[in-house]
Write a protein that binds this DNA or RNA. Structure first.
Lengths: 241, 241
DNA sequence: CCAAAAGTGTTCTGCGTACACCCATGG
DNA sequence: CCATGGGTGTACGCAGAACACTTTTGG
């Protein structure tokens, strides 16, 4: 493919570029989980026509980077986030999605352990975590992008062990269950949930307990990333909560 | 997001565009099924550096169309295909994926009933169906795009009733089973397959049989699209072969 | 009557699901 | 000793998986 294009380009690359080129951006849907609710990292627009509305973090894709690289750069430069879970969701390309010009954007979603990062290296000083329930009437088509990303997250959470990316390194089984219940919007049976997780054999029992609670302290676990990667590589991985 | 961008753009849209714009294309992975094998619709490149290699069908995205519209246009204009199953797969954006310039492409895969379309309205006269096993060493990064699309197809085939898009309107249960076995690369138990499909209740028994075979003729079925769409709308749809 | 593919039922096993009580700790 | 959340086992039903023979047609 692109054959027709190649012919034309050979005749006049400059002309083709000026006729067909368009701006490409990456938008990052950044999810965080804080005790008991799912949050979204956004900034507030300062300029018309979206002044005062929330907006996802995004930027133009530079000439010397792939889309994945662009997403990682945005997360690092603008929010100080590094080495976090990132996944492409979908391209958004409605003709009128941007008021100034034709802009195609590729959405990524990412998962952050709130608290572990302080956002202090962030370029944007006005970043803020908002409740997912407040995330509506956002700038551009970001409501749609968020909806789509949220649906993707729900699907993935059931088929891959990515929930751990939203929790501290050490977590209790109840925290994990709450995460699933919050994100998926369902309730789960405690015993069944534990049996299921046990059978997956992807948790490391740290032989530690909580120490700052005023009731029976829960046992702490961590996610066994090595086993997961190994099993993933060998295709021995099955998952379904 | 895009806020930084908006500021800059306001100062000088033309300059920003000339600095950051890039070419965006759509590539179509067109799958067809012919009796007993999965095929791919390609053209042969006529120019260097990919002369003689197979290539997916693709084109530049025009300024006045979304990516979905672009994919549909390519399928119709260049292959004469219309009203077929189409789904976005992923964006491909490696810096060096195109020899002439920075080109980001968004891949779509589509499913065609071979035979139903004659490709006669196609712009490209040198279109051809090739066996999937022949589809290697293709132009650009099309090997990677094909791999990714094929994996997507396998996943979808198990979770949504899209296999019907590859078969004639009237088909036998054995044809359907063969399709699943071919695409997924597995063998299925005939009785279990039929029981499963029966329980889905998405097939219409046409009370017709084959008439051109020299053995016991099989019953013919068609896919109940209305019921499927209704159930999909109501969220009552579960599927898992 | 022979070849070729169509069609059909039963058993077993494992997994998801429903469900209620005792335990450990801090205050 | 009380409040709070932590932690545990069993029984049932359904769906997936394994498995072999009879039926119908054309030649």
């Amino acid at each position: 493919m692109l054959d027709k294009y190649v012919e034309v380009v050979k005749e006049n690359l400059t002309e083709v570029k000026s006729t067909y080129s368009c701006l490409v951006t990456v938008d990052c849907v950044i999810f965080g989980y804080d005790q008991s609710s799912l949050k979204l990292l956004v900034i507030k627009c300062k300029d018309e026509p979206f002044k005062g509305q929330y907006s996802l973090l995004g930027d133009i894709v530079f000439a010397d980077e792939s889309l994945d690289e662009s997403a990682k750069r945005i997360l690092k430069q603008r929010a100080g986030l590094e080495n976090i879970y990132v996944e492409e969701v979908k391209a958004f390309s409605a003709k009128d999605r941007h008021p100034l010009d034709r802009v195609i954007t590729v959405a990524y979603y990412s998962l952050v352990k709130i608290g572990q990062y302080e956002l202090k290296d962030a370029q944007d000083r006005d970043l803020q975590w908002i409740e997912l329930s407040e995330a509506h009437n956002m700038a551009y088509d970001h409501d749609l992008i968020l909806q789509t990303s949220m649906n993707r997250l729900k699907v993935r959470l059931r088929e891959r062990p990515i929930g751990f990316n939203l929790l501290p390194k050490r977590f209790t089984l109840n925290q994990l269950q709450n995460l699933y219940e919050t994100v998926l919007g369902i309730t789960l049976d405690k015993r069944n949930f534990r049996r299921k997780l046990n059978s997956l054999d992807l948790l490391i029992d740290l032989d530690q307990t909580q120490d700052d609670v005023s009731h029976r302290p829960a046992k702490l676990y961590s996610f066994d990333m090595d086993t997961y990667k190994l099993r993933k590589k060998n295709g021995n991985l099955q998952f379904d909560i």
